[in-house]
Nucleic acid binder design. Structure first.
Length: 352
DNA sequence: AAATCGGGGAT
DNA sequence: ATCCCAGATTT
């Protein structure tokens, strides 16, 4: 009937975790607290925090009545204190709205701060045996592999598909165990690296295993479209064909390399150019884009030909930035950024 | 250095 | 509804 759930439950009976502190007793408050802690921290670490927390604040009402400082102190070391504040606030709301209990109604539950679809489902399933799916990181990994789902789980279409699968697999019987089982499988067998497919109860029908995709799924987050910055590069060339270069500062890209002077836009380029040389006119050269790992740089070269170097520059007396007029023959010896070298080479070939 | 995690908040 | 960020840990 539900081969996925049955295989998982059989595995869980033998290999799952049955001794986690929030399983004994398994009430809504303890499940909620554990799920919230587990959103950010691994089981091994959470256990100690959980035990201290419930010893100090064993019930939702006591949590609601506790001073925030105490809640934060109990949370101290777990990080992400916003979640502790949500927890505290939600407890107070439960006292106000729900008679001091976490609601058994899904919509009322997810209306509380810090409880979303997955945590809400986990509470209802684990504490009350209600048939609600969960979709935490472990489950996402199991399902993307089992069904061979490509695409980053963060993409809405993929996530939608995952919720759909999660729902279909969730059984009506033993929902609490099932929920724990699929999380345990993800945590101990279907791990992100070095999954132990040899011991997996779902190996028979796992698409990723069948197709050799286990290491490829879940798909990594697509490289975010890199921002594009724009710059105008000034090619100041004097009558002898020398080009003005500047040494870049120690910060930013191309630290310490010799490069063309830059400006934010054409106007600024003109202002800057006139400080270095007497200029007649400018010619826009074809723009091109240089790709860095973290952004794209669209370069608009602006050629000032027949520039007459200003005396101070010609004498190398300019204070900052360090700059010099270079012969094309000197360029090879200088450490030029690749796109600048390319630009100057094209210039030579094109206009020489 | 980059990915991760589930939920909140902005748009 | 859809995108983007949080905030600390892990890889």
């Amino acid at each position: 009937m539900k081969p996925f759930a049955n295989a998982l439950l059989a595995w869980f009976d033998e290999h799952g975790r049955h001794d986690l502190p929030w399983q004994h007793p398994r009430d809504a408050y303890r499940v909620w607290l554990s799920e919230t802690m587990l959103q950010q921290t691994q089981v091994a670490t959470v256990v100690g925090y959980f035990e201290r927390f419930v010893e100090a604040l064993p019930t939702l009402r006591e949590l609601a009545a506790a001073p925030e400082d105490q809640v934060l102190a109990l949370w101290s070391g777990l990080g992400y204190y916003r979640r502790a504040r949500f927890l505290h606030r939600a407890a107070q709301l439960c006292v106000e709205r729900h008679d001091g209990q976490l609601p058994r109604d899904f919509d009322a539950l997810v209306a509380l701060p810090g409880i979303g679809r997955s945590t809400g489902g986990a509470i209802l399933a684990q504490a009350h045996g209600l048939r609600f799916p969960i979709l935490d990181g472990n489950v996402k990994r199991v399902l993307t592999r089992y069904h061979g789902i490509h695409g980053h789980p963060g993409e809405s279409a993929v996530e939608k598909s995952l919720w759909q699968r999660a729902d279909t697999h969730t059984p009506t019987m033993r929902v609490a165990d099932y929920t724990q089982a699929i999380m345990d499988l993800g945590a101990t067998v279907c791990t992100r690296t070095k999954p132990r497919c040899g011991t997996c109860p779902l190996a028979d029908s796992c698409i990723a295993l069948r197709d050799g995709l286990v290491t490829l799924l879940p798909s990594p987050k697509p490289a975010k479209t890199t921002p594009t910055r724009e710059t105008v590069m000034l090619v100041l060339r004097d009558a002898r064909g020398r080009v003005l270069l500047e040494r870049r500062g120690p910060q930013g890209v191309w630290p310490g390399l010799w490069s063309l002077p830059e400006a934010a836009d054409v106007d600024a380029a003109w202002r800057s150019a006139r400080q270095c040389a007497r200029i007649d006119d400018a010619q826009a050269l074809p723009p091109f884009t240089h790709v860095f790992s973290h952004y794209k740089l669209r370069i608009e070269p602006l050629l000032f030909d027949g520039a007459t170097p200003t005396r101070s520059i010609a004498d190398n007396a300019a204070p900052t930035p360090e700059s010099r007029w270079c012969d094309t023959s000197e360029l090879v010896a200088l450490g030029l950024p690749a796109p600048v070298r390319k630009l100057l080479q094209n210039l030579e070939g094109h206009l020489a």
